[in-house]
Amino acid sequence: MSGPGVLAAPGGRRALGETRHLLLTVAPGVLWLLIFLVLPGIYLMGVAFMTNGPYGQPQMPLTLDAFERLAGYGILGWSPANLYTLLRSLAQTLIATLLVVAISYPLAYHISTAKARWRPVMLLALVVPSWTNQVIRTFGWMNLLAPGTPLAGLAESLNLIPSNMGLYPSNIAVTLGLVYNFLPFMVLPLYAAFEKLDISQVEAAQDLYASPLRTFRHAVFPQTLPGLLAGVVLVAIPAFGMYVVSELLGGGKHMLLGNLVARQFGGGANWPLGAAGAILMLLATFAGLYVMRRLGRRLGGGDEVVI
């Protein structure tokens, strides 16, 4: 999926040589995107409108079958399963992102105010886990949340879950997995924002009668907004398309859109449906990015925030 791309608008007239120079420097990137994003995208688009063959392969004629299936209409009438999966993906993405933000703000602030020699150590401690494979780390969480573990025991003793059930597989386990996996992607851009925070603005707000909460709202938040938005993009987009965490910690019952899509290209064998799901994901992502961009403009006073 596409990361944050800077959309620079070339304005004004340029000399011919400059234009050629620009084309030359941009060409490799454009070529890359063309081969690995645009062309597969077009192919996927085509597949989505084709008919599902007897062995799962796409074939003619062109239909809207895949989209109807995606919307829940099957041979047995309408089923809400796919709709639930979509809603679950959106909800998981939203909840996980909010949790990640809530954890990252104090964490990033804490790291940025720590003694200079401790900061690299703290950042390293944050990043090191992501050097191991995501599957292995998620297996780790399965062991932590399984029935009989201290965490599950604690949840049982608080009557949060029925006895001997364990915390996984569940929606909560998926949320935990998402938060755990994407935390560094929020902390790092926020930390960078805190690093260059103009403390005099914070002091000015305090000086001008702003309570601690309002100081954060009016002096800290606007300054860290670019970092926050970058972090949200880095967290929300991959979380929305997440496959591994929901497959393992959801136990197949709490699947997300990513799992639905993956299934169509694997065992389920319905390429047109999978392609339709992928296109839905892409559209949702673009819509999300558009909202973020508008939000950034409104909160950030116009410029600076570029997604």
Partner: peptide, 20 residues
């Protein structure tokens, strides 16, 4: 605390809020 003092400061760096 600072925000409850009837004292205001003109900062060396001015510290205006750029987003306002």
């Amino acid at each position: 605390p600072a925000h409850q003092r009837s004292v205001n400061t003109v900062f060396q760096s001015y510290a205006l809020f750029p987003h306002l």
